[in-house]
Design a protein around this nucleic acid. Structure first.
Lengths: 194, 194
DNA sequence: TGGTGACTTGACATGGTGTCAAGTTGACAG
DNA sequence: CTGTCAACTTGACACCATGTCAAGTCACCA
């Protein structure tokens, strides 16, 4: 078993990830994570001061394991703005399923917990930078629509790539992941290009 | 004062509405609503069995007072599919601010409370019907894009008109309401028409 | 041998929801 | 005038999850 030798901290993160990936993410309690890890609830608190910090650490852990940076770097190598936009939608859109469990738990917390809210905003701020870069590439090609300012175009793209929109189309509407990517590329193309 | 003669039940709904419209909607507790109404916390439970039911009753109350039906009826009188689509976006998009407080409290609850989740889904199901009708009108005019099925087009429109997307553009991105309506009409037009 | 760090056990405070039981009060019917 | 009933009050309590605190176990290391 590869997980036998992991430090307790990592085993906790693995457990959290696993449980959060299952259904009903926001119903996952500290005691569930402890049980899954095979340690006491209090031991979890020796590694993470609060539930919010554990969730945040879990997103960072997933980022690392799934190498989100690597995925996004690839989207930056596209030659045209349009290609770059599509590559970015594909890269991020295909990453959402990985973090969805933790993301939804964090989103559910943010209303009551400022720390969780700030952390999630921060996380999403990084996505906005990606959107900004894609919009800038489009503008450089002279293909950004006249009807939106740069920042409006960025905001719009950002919204289309939100976890909430992914959840809506994939879960509430039952779309496949492939169709989701396809249609978002198409929508975003129609809204922003030319 | 018009509210002096209201039955207690209505005064509770008014209080809930008022408090939920203020900031931090999901932080509104039963005791806050009781205090605002000028009655004991237990008295609230004499009228509404759970917090979820109170929130749901509040949305219905707002629907009634703000006459959402009337607003939507108007959008149905448009002659062309495109006009109808735009009228629907305008009608619903301008209604979201009215219910936003209650909506966000309900959305925050739905993760943990099945009853709240079901009620909110039901509510949103009604919006989907409106979307469906707008898409059907577009199709009748032969102006629905080839690249989406009827139900996909409906899902897409539905997502654009979600409370979450409104919150994203208006709150997170700071757009004005007018600009929000404008850009959503434009986006939805580009994605669905022709 | 003795100390240290990681963990366990168990108790407890906090904060919000929802329940229960025993009043109080005012209006209305007989 | 009196009894009753509905609406409301007061106060206590169970529940549940988070987070804290204190004391104890245990393996490893100097």
């Amino acid at each position: 078993m590869s997980s036998e030798n992991l430090e307790t901290r990592e085993r906790i993160l693995e457990s959290a990830w696993k449980l959060l990936t299952g259904s009903q993410a926001s119903a996952v309690r500290m005691s569930d994570i402890a049980k899954q890890t095979g340690i006491s609830r209090q031991a979890v608190y020796l590694h993470f001061p609060t539930r919010a910090e554990l969730l945040i650490a879990t997103t960072r852990y997933i980022d690392e394991v799934k190498d989100i940076d690597e995925r996004l770097v690839k989207s930056r190598s596209a030659s045209t703005g349009l290609e770059r936009l599509e590559a970015f939608v594909e890269a991020w859109g295909n990453y959402i399923p990985e973090i969805y469990g933790v993301a939804s738990a964090l989103i559910a917390m943010q209303a009551k917990d400022d720390e969780a809210g700030a952390a999630w905003s921060d996380r999403m701020g990084a996505v906005r930078h990606g959107c900004e870069a894609a919009v800038a590439a489009l503008e450089r090609d002279g293909r950004l629509t006249q009807s939106l300012s740069t920042s409006e175009a960025t905001d719009l793209l950002w919204g289309q790539l939100s976890v909430e929109n992914w959840e809506h189309l994939r879960h509430r509407c039952g779309w496949t992941q492939a169709r989701y990517i396809d249609v978002v590329q198409q929508t975003v193309g129609a809204a922003l290009v030319d």
